[in-house]
Write a protein that binds this DNA or RNA. Structure first.
Lengths: 207, 207
DNA sequence: CCTCCGTTTGAACGGTCAGTCAACCTCACG
DNA sequence: CGTGAGGTTGACTGACCGTTCAAACGGAGG
């Protein structure tokens, strides 16, 4: 077998395991995830999991960021399809509300964020990774804001786009937690409305 | 020994264990907390822990909300000492920023919130408890807002105080996470400033 | 058809830890 | 003092689970 083919197969299997792991973590929680569960989820024996990963811990760390990476790619693709800055920011918001769009399983996405945060508290490696993921997300927001300001769609001129992005982003984090945990005080629809209002207010455009 | 004395001693020991558990969870994380650790922390043998608690799980669940209860009591006391609504809201904000005031170990407080959230994802009992804690917090904010509106300190009249409280509260949740995780993009001071600005804007009073 | 090497298996190992239990302690009360 | 009940101990157990490993598999190349 040619070397590239071997590498390809290895990468596929690795990916398969990572995706299974990500799913299991979402279902059972990080703390309750066993190697056996992951093996079951992709129909292989437990031994194979540790053939592809140095340890359970490393595998879990890698799996945690997988869904987020996928979300980011999907989001970037969507952005390119939308011309107006306002359309982009509103789509970003829409995509970020847990459970708003049935076609995206964003509840999963957000549940993994909680696990990432807890782990980042004590694992410096994960702390670094989390910061990078977060920065990437805030930068995406900031980019849309800069774009809209440049095009004249957003009237607010005197504030740093990154500051606004940060405010909007952290506010959505906070609300998403409540929505994720099914707090009756804040439904997906309500979060959606509040976030859109906040965006209009912060960026300066009309409804 | 009279029955009340027995009960008193039992309650003290229980409390002692709960507080030790709360501390250990803060230090090591929920997942890494062992009964042995808790026993060590209050200088008793592991067996005694399970003499006072049905299981490790129940103990941890109870311990998780302890710090939050204490924070709430402390906060209520502080509120009574401040006359103006504006002073109250600004004190609430100050108290909520992780690591802003050295005399309060609010990093601990917030770290426990993360653990509560993760656990609430899959434990209905904890989900209910979390919702109650959160409601209590939002209600405190709303109360101050109603007070300030009534006294004329806050000029915004047309929005539901609970809506404003929710917005302010969730925004602070989101920021607190970043601060807690030592994100360089948002220091305690910056969170403090942003939250104060948001309060002024939402409630309608001047700097 | 054989060989070889990367892949896969699943049984076995070893460490960890929640929970149990029998014995011991202590002290209030008679 | 003696007694008894509640409090405390810490060794023990049984289950669980990450990790290891020797053996088996499979298919590409000769």
């Amino acid at each position: 077998m040619p070397k590239t083919a071997v590498k390809k197969q290895q990468r596929d299997r690795r990916q398969e395991i990572l995706e299974a792991a990500s799913q299991v973590i979402t279902d059972r929680g990080l703390a309750e995830t066993r190697i056996q569960d992951i093996a079951d989820a992709c129909g292989v024996s437990p031994g194979l999991i540790l053939y592809y990963f140095e340890s359970k811990d490393r595998l879990l760390a890698e799996a945690l960021t997988l869904a987020n990476d996928r979300f980011y790619l999907e989001m970037s693709r969507e952005m390119r399809k939308i011309a107006s800055a306002r359309g982009r920011i509103e789509r970003l918001i829409e995509l970020s509300v847990p459970g708003l769009l049935p076609e995206y399983a964003l509840l999963d996405e957000w549940a993994l964020w909680l696990e990432i945060w807890v782990r980042a508290l004590r694992d410096p490696q994960m702390a670094k990774e989390r910061e990078a993921l977060d920065r990437r997300w805030i930068q995406s927001l900031a980019e849309v804001i800069r774009y809209g300001r440049q095009s004249g769609e957003f009237s607010v001129q005197d504030i740093d786009p990154e500051d606004v992005a940060l405010e909007l982003g952290t506010m959505m984090d906070g609300m998403a937690i409540q929505v994720l945990l099914h707090d009756p005080a804040i439904t997906p629809e309500r979060m959606h409305r509040i976030a859109l209002d906040a965006a209009r207010r912060l960026l300066g455009y009309d409804a």
